[in-house]
Write a protein that binds this DNA or RNA. Sequence first.
DNA 1: GTTCTATTTGAACGTGTGTTCATATAAGCT
DNA 2: AGCTTATATGAACACACGTTCAAATAGAAC
Lengths: 195, 195
Amino acid sequence: MARTQGSHSDITGPRIRKAALHLFARYGYAAVSMRQIAAEVGVQAGALYNYTPDKQSLLYRLMRDHMEELLAAQKALPSQDCALDALRQFVGFHIRFHMQRPEEVFIAYMELRNLTPENFAEIEALRRDYEDALQGILVAGQAEGVFALQDAKIATLAVIAMLNGVMTWYRAGGRLSLDQVERIYWDMVRKAVAA
Amino acid sequence: MARTQGSHSDITGPRIRKAALHLFARYGYAAVSMRQIAAEVGVQAGALYNYTPDKQSLLYRLMRDHMEELLAAQKALPSQDCALDALRQFVGFHIRFHMQRPEEVFIAYMELRNLTPENFAEIEALRRDYEDALQGILVAGQAEGVFALQDAKIATLAVIAMLNGVMTWYRAGGRLSLDQVERIYWDMVRKAVAA
DNA sequence: GTTCTATTTGAACGTGTGTTCATATAAGCT
DNA sequence: AGCTTATATGAACACACGTTCAAATAGAAC
C-alpha cells in the first residue's frame, strides 16, 4: 500500500474530497472527524494530510469550488433580450444547477459559521456576486416597467430564499418532475415581481 | 455556593437554557461543549446535570418549546373573514414572531440533524402542523377564487422559505423598519399567490 | 534487479469530550 | 443552634479529537 505516481495521488485526493462532501453534508462539519473521512476512503487519518493542510481547508475548498462553479456557470448563460426572459432563465438555471449538487448547496450555507473569518469573507464575496447578478436582472426589469418592486435588494434575497426552499423537499423520483418544479416556481416568482 | 430552595434552582435552570441557546445559535450544537455552557453560567460542568439529563435533551427542549410556542401563538390568532385577510395576518405574524426569536429560529432549522431520530420525528411533526395552517389558508383562498396555485403544498413551502429569508439579513436598527419589511414581503407574497 | 521516492502506515502528542459521583457547602425548617 | 437536604464542586472515567512524524512500502525509472 504505497504510491503509484499520478495514480494513487490522483485518485486519493478526489476520494477524500468526495468523502468529506458526503459526511459534512450528512452530519455537519463539526460532527465529522478526520478519522471518519479517512475510514470512508479506506486509509489512515495521517494520509489525509498529504492532500489537505488541515480540516478547515477541506471545508473551505469544497465551498469555494462550489461557489466558483456556480458563478462561472451563471456568467456563461446566454444574454437575453428582455428582463423577463433573463429572469426566467435565471430561475431555471438556479433550480437545475442546485438540484444537481444538493450536498454542495447544503454545505455552502449550513457551514458558513465554521469557516475562519478570512475564509468566510471570501465565500461571502462570491455569494454576493451571485446575488448581484439576479439583482441586476430585477433592476433592469424595473427600468423596463415589467417588474414592480418596493425594494430590489430584498426582492433579490426573497427570490433566492424561495428558490433555495426547493432543496429542502425535492427528491428525484418524487411526485413532481424537474420540469414541473421549474414551471411552478417560475409562475410564483414571475407573479411576485410583476408590475 | 450551594442551594436556595426555589431560588438557585429556579435561577440556574433558565440560565443554563439561555446560555445553551446563545452558544448553540452562535457556534452550532456540535461545536459547543458542556463546559462552555457551564462557564457561561458561571458554574462547573457537573452542575448542569441537575437540570438536564444530557446535552441532547438541552437541544431538544429548546426546539420543542420554541415550536410549541409558535404553534400556540399561531392558533391564538383571530379568525378572519376571507383568505386574503388570513394570509396577510399570517405573513405579519410569521415575520414578527420569528424576528423576536432569531436564535430559537436559527437553531430550529440548523440543528435538526443533531436530534436523535425520535426527537427529530417529534419536532418535524410540529413543523408540519405549522405548515398545514398556512396551507389551509392557501387552499381556502383557491376555493374562494382569490388565489391561483399550481400546487398548494409547494406554494406553502415557497412562502415559508421566502419569509424565513428575512432572518438571514434583517438586523434591528437597519435601514428598514419592521413595518416596512412586513409591507414589502406581504406585497410579494400576495402577488405570488394571486389569481 | 536495483535504486529512488511518492505515498501510506501506525503510533504518539497534548488536549478536549460527555458524563458520573463522592464530597463539601449553605440555605430552610424546627 | 442543629439538622436536613437541595445544590454545586472538582476530580476522575474512558474515549475521541486534530495533527505530526519516523518508519515501512511498493510502483516507476534506470
